[in-house]
């Protein structure tokens, strides 16, 4: 399916950018006229994915996070969040609710939130090369 609109942005993996990333993506999605709940769902899922890049992909360094979003005719938004960080050795394990490789203050719920707030979540990762998380959601808006 061909997208009808798209945007791309690149930012450094600084935690202060988490707010910017989720607001930028939801502002782009606003053209689909989402409900407040749908906006909040996307905001939260993007926040989780971007936090993963900052905390896990670039643990000791500042790297780049590449975000793109595309809108499709059927009112679906597809968001890609990519890094060129350390990668995930075991994706299945990383996606288990409550699993965290860091412990302490991390709840281990990032992927669980993405999966429950979006329609589709895809994760591709190559250790040493980086990770791409693709989030998809159909915007039903106020017609629902």
């Amino acid at each position: 399916m061909k997208s009808t609109n798209e945007m791309k942005l690149t930012m450094e993996s600084r935690s202060v950018n988490e707010g910017f990333a989720r607001v930028a993506v939801t502002a782009f999605t606003a053209q689909l006229d989402p409900t407040i709940e749908e906006i909040n769902d996307i905001k939260t899922a993007v926040s989780e994915a971007v936090t993963n890049c900052i905390v896990h992909a670039y643990p000791e360094t500042v790297g780049r996070i590449y975000i793109s979003a595309s809108i499709y005719d059927n009112l679906t938004v597809r968001i890609k969040i990519r890094d060129s960080g350390v990668g995930i050795p075991d994706i299945k394990k990383a996606m288990e609710p409550l699993y965290t490789s860091l412990g302490g203050e991390r709840a281990g719920l990032g992927f669980a939130v993405m999966e429950s707030f979006m329609d589709k979540v895809r994760v591709r990762s190559v250790p040493g090369k980086g990770t791409t998380v693709t989030l998809e959601k159909k915007i039903r808006g106020r017609d629902e």
């Binding site: 989720r22 909040n40 939260t44 989780e48 936090t51 203050e105 709840a107 719920l109 669980a112 939130v113």
Partner: peptide, 10 residues
């Protein structure tokens, strides 16, 4: 006004 899973960790 907004909270993600970092709030859960908190």
């Amino acid at each position: 006004t907004f909270m993600d899973s970092s709030g859960i960790g908190l």
